[in-house]
Structure formats: C-alpha cells, structure tokens
C-alpha cells in the first residue's frame, strides 16, 4: 500500500546492506565489540557483497522500537534484550527464572541445546522475524543507596526500580521489597530523588548507565540472566541466497560467542570499575547467600512465568538446564 511513496534511497545502497541497530554506545564494551565482530566477519566472508552499517547507542531508537523496525523491515537486524522482546514473544520470559543458571557456561550450553534452537525456530514462526542466535547480556544484580544488601532480609521495605516487566516486579516482591516500574531513562533520576532506593541491572549497565554515580552499594548477587536475541527481518533474510544466509547465520553465532565471553568478563570488570572509579562498595555474594535468594525468589517467579507462558516452555528449559549441568559437571 505504501509503494506509491517511492522510497528511493539517495545514497544508492547495495541491496545487501545490513543496517544493524543496537542500544550500547560505540566504544570498548562487550556489545559493541560483538556486533563489530559480526560486521567484520560478514563483510570479509561475503567478499564485500554484503556491507554492514552499524547504528550503536540507540541512535535509531530503544530496543523495543528497533525490534519493531526489524519486524516492519525498516531495519535489517538488531539485538534486543529479553525485556524488550517479551512484548513480541512472551515465552522468552522463561529464561528469566531467578537462579536458573548456576553459571554463565551452563547458560551458553542451553542456548546451543535443542531447547535453544527450538525456541529460535519458534520465534521465527510466531513473529516472522528470523531469530539467529541467543547471547548473554550479563547477570543482573542489585545496586542500592543507603544500605548494602547481603541477604534477602536486607531488602524488606526497599523500593526497587525494575524494568516495566511483570517478571522482575514479581521477583522483587518475592524478596519483600516493593517494585517501582520506571522506564530506563528515568531510572537514575528516580534514584537520585529518592523515589526508589535501588535498581537491578548487569554491572556494565550500572556503570555505563549512570547509576554508578548515584548508588552507594552494589551486590553481585546475579539473580537473573540477561538475554540478547540476534534478530533479522524475515522477508529480507529469505531474499538472501543460501550462501549469504549461511554467512549471516555464522556471523551471528560469532557475535553471540564474543558477547558471551566478554559479558561474563564484564561481570567482574565492571564490578571493579564501579568500586575503583565510582567509589561504590561492592559485595560479591557467596554461594550460600545466593542459595538464600534462590529459595525466596525461584518458585514464586516460576509460578508467575508458568501462568504467563504455560507449563511447557518452563519445564523444557529446566530440563535443558539439567542436561547441560550433567554434561558439564557430571
């Protein structure tokens, strides 16, 4: 219906240019490095037939808006987080069960498992977007003003900013704190004003997003795995030749592998930066302390997620985690 408007790009771009939008700023950070890897891989493997143009720093919009653009075909590829993607594909929330993954490598293995591949296919079927890979967006942890969190009981009565996603609100509630859903842009401001006492994000986001300048304490308690999904517009992807599709798919796997490693490094790298540059007092939760958090949060949140996405996905991911742990730790 819109063909009449004749959208002719002036710059005469090649048909195989990939516009890739993502949220993190240009610089030496895991997300930017991973997407750059993708660009280099695809451009060199395709002999320059495919060019990749990066739009970092949310220039094109928020993760949710970029996902919309990918769905509509205004953008070829993007890297939304689970929170932004849940509106397009609810079952993605199954990954957000607190303390589901004992460690990052377990999560990587689940991403590669039958379950992981099955969910990528399911996303492609249900949304029309080609889901190419999952990658790790760091474990989420609490940062607070005024009071260090060691055990769940420390959270009683605190007001915690969460993403505008019911899963996280449920989790914060389970810890006895009251969740305040505020958009990302307002979060630091709300913290500054004392509207909330804390927030939860991966350490890299606490550091780069400005929360590090406001909070006094950070607890690396790693309650939920943050997930990224590499997505492409379905029609565009299907219009590529088989070999081009393979290059893009392989490039996406490389992106995921790079981000997985660097995000895991980021958990301690950025914790350290928070401590050294921002003067934040950092506490690394012991396995025993994490067990306490797990007891409080896992069941209620899992029940909530089951009520949202059904038994099937939740059971399957739990099974995939079991299998991964067995193959890794025997």
């Amino acid at each position: 219906m819109v063909a009449g408007f004749g959208i002719m790009p002036l710059q005469g771009w090649a048909e195989t240019q990939i516009k890739f939008g993502f949220e993190m700023f240009k610089g030496d950070n895991p997300e930017y490095n991973a997407v750059s890897r993708f660009k280099e891989y695809v451009e060199s493997k395709s002999n320059g037939e495919i060019s990749v143009r990066l739009f970092p720093g949310g220039q094109l919009g928020t993760a949710r808006e970029m996902t919309e653009m990918v769905q509509q075909g205004s953008l070829e590829m993007s890297l939304p987080s689970d929170g932004a993607f849940a509106g397009f594909y609810e079952p993605i929330q199954a990954w957000s069960i607190p303390y589901l993954f004992r460690s990052a490598p377990v999560a990587w293995q689940v991403m590669q498992s039958d379950f992981g591949r099955g969910m990528l296919d399911d996303i492609t079927r249900k949304t029309g977007m080609e889901a190419l890979a999952f990658s790790e967006n760091g474990f989420r942890s609490f940062a607070t003003t005024g009071k260090q969190i060691i055990e769940p009981s420390d959270m009683e009565g605190l007001k915690i900013r969460t993403m505008e996603s019911p899963v996280y609100m449920e989790m914060v509630k389970a810890l006895g704190a009251s969740p305040t859903p505020i958009s990302g842009a307002e979060a630091v401001m709300a913290l500054k004003q004392g509207v909330v006492d804390g927030l939860e994000s991966p350490p890299a986001v606490h550091y780069t997003g400005g929360a590090g300048d406001v909070v006094d304490y950070f607890t690396l308690n790693e309650h939920v795995l943050g997930l990224h999904i590499v997505i492409a517009n379905g029609d565009w992807f299907n219009s590529l030749s088989a070999s081009q599709q393979q290059i893009v798919t392989d490039g996406s796997k490389l992106l995921a592998a790079t981000e997985n490693v660097q995000k895991t490094e980021g958990d301690w790298k950025y914790s350290k930066l928070l401590e050294e540059e921002k003067g934040v007092e950092v506490h690394v939760s012991t396995p025993e302390e994490k067990e306490l958090f797990k007891e409080k949060t896992q069941d209620p949140v899992r029940k909530y997620i089951v009520s949202q996405v059904g038994e099937e996905f939740v059971n399957e991911i739990m099974k995939a985690v079991d299998e991964a742990e067995q193959s890794m730790y025997n």
Binding site: I7, L10, M69
Partner: peptide, 13 residues
C-alpha cells in the same frame, strides 16, 4: 528520506 531509511521510521519516532 535523505538518510535512506524507510519513511515508516518516522511513525515510530
């Protein structure tokens, strides 16, 4: 239109 992005983007903005 000059940036080469589809006009559809303006709705999102």
């Amino acid at each position: 239109w000059l940036t080469g992005l589809p006009l559809q983007v303006s709705i999102t903005r």
